[in-house]
Structures are given as C-alpha cells and as structure tokens.
Amino acid sequence: MDYNTLIVLMGLLSTGSLLGGFGALVSLKGENLTADVAGHGVVSGVVVSKGLLAVLGAAWLAVPLLWVCGFASSALTLGFIFWARSRGYSAGAAQAMAIGLAYGLTLVLMSLVQGYGAFSTKGLTTLLLGDAATLSLGRILPAISMLLGAGLVFGLFWRGLMNWVLDPQSTQLQGQSSALALMWIVATVAVVLTCLPALGLTLLVGGLTLPALAVRPWVRGFPALVIGSAAVGGVFATLAGWLSAGIVPLPTGALVIVTLGAVWLLSMILARGVSAVRMRRAA
C-alpha cells in the first residue's frame, strides 16, 4: 500500500468514526436534518474564507479563517431558523427557507469570489461531494485530533451526555441547558467542517445517520451504541475507500455512503431474521 492510499484510508477511518459516533447522538436527539441544515450554513462561510484569504494573501490564516467564517455562517443559518420558528413558521418551513438562503448566498458569493480567482465551481463541487482521493496529512489531521478529543470527552463524560441526550429537561432544570445547547451547535459545526474534505456536505448526513441505524438493533446500552456506530462508520468507510482505491475505481464519497446503506439494509434483514427465530423458539 503506497503512502497516499494510507493517508486516504486513515482520513476515511477517522472521518467515518467521527461521523458515526457523533451521528449516534444526533440520531438519538432526532436532529439529523437540523445537522444537515447547520452543515449547509457552513458552505457559504467556507466560500467567504477563500475570498478573504485571496484578498489578504496570508496563507497561515487559511485554517483560522475557515473556522471563523464557517462558524459565523452556520450560526447565521441556525439563527435564521430560530427567528423563523419564533415568528410561528413550522420546523420544516423554517429549515427549507434556511437551506434556500444558505445555498443562494453560497452561489452568489461564489460568483463574487471567483473574480479574485480564489474559488471556483469545482471548489464548491468538492465541498459538496468531497474529494477523498486528494486527502493529505495536513487535511486529515483535524479529523484525527477531533476523533481523539471526542473519544476523550466521551470517555470522561458519557453518563452526563447520555442524561442530556435522553432527557434534556432534567439538564434544563439544573440550569445547564443553554450552555450545553451552545456546545452542541459548536460540536455539530466542528464535525461538519472536519469531515467536509473526505465526504462533502451532501453525503455527510448519510455518514451521520446510517452507522447508528445499522448498529441500533444489536446493542442495548448508550455507550455501546455510540462506540458501535463509530466502529461501523470507521471500518466500512475505510473498506469502501480501499475498494475505490484499486478494485472498483468509483467516486469514494458516494461509495462510502452506498456501502454504509448496504450495511444498514443487511443489519435490518439480519435483525428481523434473528427476531423471528427467537420468537419461534419462545413459542
């Protein structure tokens, strides 16, 4: 295995695990589509950061600008949803308008930034669909660090996290609700920003959702669900990456998501079969 393939597979392992583990929490909260909207909000920030970078010309600012602009634009999108909900729009209508706004802004900003040669339609396509084949050590380090950090936080605070995910009202009563809600949004945007290079925004929501669904029939406890989802996400993303690197030369991001979809389907069929056998034995 050559160095580049190794880097790509490491990137997919960390991205898949991060999305799988975090996605288990998102799925338990039923916020998959909200995470998707937050992700859409990030894209216009990424475009702005590219434009600013071209104007300022300071390469060392690339990462800080990306994170600041990504957070700011995602916060604006989520802020728009909160505003629309407070006015009386339903959740679906508010989310739909927010996505329209985010993408409209992205495309218009892209046209403006293109003038500086900072960004192009191809760049935006990469943001939306990912480009795992071009991953480098520098681009996968955030995912690896984030995975390690998230693992540490989960190891230390998993019980508190479980209480908050399963019963947000109890933490509200303890007065920690708004701080945790803010941390949740920050974590969502951070995960999106970290995983964009490998999978892209459009497919990312699949990485958040499918591993948890595949694992759910087989585990009972909260830690098992999160760890299991991370494992399934990581292992099958890596497997799909390895397949696309040599055996079936197809777009990596799409192959990762279709593989995870197939794993979910198999898991559902197996779970149903096992349940039928158990019921027959019990009868």
Partner: peptide
C-alpha cells in the same frame, strides 16, 4: 431520520 438515512444513499447511487 428516515429521510436523512435514505436520500444520501440514493444520491450516492446516482453519483456512482
């Protein structure tokens, strides 16, 4: 959740 699970798989199949 069901929408979030299915549409990326369909879109991924389309890209493939």
């Amino acid at each position: 959740v069901e929408i979030a699970a299915l549409f990326p798989v369909f879109f991924g199949l389309g890209i493939l």
